[in-house]
Amino acid sequence: MKNKNSFLSTIFKLLTTGDKILILIFFLFGFVSLFALQRYQQPGSTVLIKIANNKIYRYNLDKDREINLHGPIGTTRILIHKGKVRVIHSDCPQKICVKSGWISGSFEIIVCVPNKIIIAIESKNNQYFDVITQ
């Protein structure tokens, strides 16, 4: 304990007033940017749509809208609503994509294999490491 205190006081003695102000500025900057980054990253999520492995479309997840997508067997209609997305109509036979329901996390995906459509969410939040097994 004594050693630790003497070590800290040695460091403290080494610092000039300018150094101390600089350190304070660093801490303040770090603290402010932590919140600023969180605010900045939360929107930014996009709905990525891929048709037949080549055409790629991106839509803002925060803007409500309905979109008609045209795949090899017909139309797939998707709805973006309150930061979530789902398929509301599909010309495919089994409607697995419609039954998939809403997705909103960056690791969630809706797929329509017959109509060759992938709907995924891209965002930069920490959930990007997560994955769903099913």
Binding site: K99, G101, F107, N126, F129, D130, V131, I132, T133
Partner: peptide, 26 residues
């Protein structure tokens, strides 16, 4: 939904593998 991961210190400890609820969609 079947997967394999390889990992370095970069992502160690960060990944959760979620199991889908078999009856409640989403």
């Amino acid at each position: 939904g079947d997967l394999k991961t390889i990992c370095t210190n970069l992502t160690a400890g960060k990944r959760k593998v979620w199991i889908n609820h078999p009856r409640n969609t989403g």
